[in-house]
């Protein structure tokens, strides 16, 4: 039985603390201890991107991140993006652009896109492709996803103007 260790993180802006098994990944901790199942476990070895989260502003793969190393960190996941029932522009663009079929890759795609838009508010198509290159999708052929990210960027800049 692995030793339990305390883990305190700011999860989507909320102070949270749970005991997690020493040596467990952040993905396991988020899904099993913090009840946030939005990051998905696909390959569990850093090749598919389904578990993508943002840690202290940086894009990270939760399946390759030790939970204990995140003590005190701020973690963002897709489940924290809608505010007061209002979807984030990325979520809205994914929905309206039919940028999902089975939906398994969607949380990771949205986090990868969010990290891009936080850094580059008006990305080029090539920048979007580059940002999504670590995330695998089997259903959509990527085209609707790329278009949704570009649409969200347009909606953002329109709101800012």
């Amino acid at each position: 039985m692995a030793k339990k260790v305390p883990l305190q993180i700011t999860l989507n802006g909320e102070e949270r603390a749970e005991f997690v098994e020493s040596g467990s990944t952040l993905l396991t901790a988020l899904r099993d201890r913090f009840d946030d199942t939005s990051p998905k476990g696909g390959c569990n070895q850093g090749t598919c991107g389904a578990c993508t989260v943002i840690i202290d502003g940086e894009l990270r793969l939760a399946c390759l991140t030790l939970a204990e190393m995140c003590d005190g960190a701020s973690v963002q996941t897709t489940s924290g993006m809608a505010k007061g029932g209002v979807l984030h522009p990325l979520q809205r663009a994914f929905m309206e652009g039919f940028a999902a079929q089975c939906g398994f890759c969607t949380p990771g795609m949205i986090m990868a896109a969010k990290a891009l838009l936080d850094r580059v508010p008006n990305p080029s198509r090539d920048e979007v492709i580059e940002a999504l290159a670590g995330n695998i999708c089997r259903c959509t052929g990527y085209e609707p996803i790329i278009n949704a990210v570009l649409e969200a960027a347009r909606a953002n800049s329109h709101n800012a103007a």
Binding site: C43, C48, I129, L132, A133, I136, G141, Y142, E143, I146
Partner: peptide
């Protein structure tokens, strides 16, 4: 031995469709 070694095109490999 698993899908990690199974090659599929990514978002950068899309032709004009």
């Amino acid at each position: 031995t698993d899908f990690n070694q199974y090659l599929m095109p990514g978002p950068g490999d899309l032709p004009e469709t």
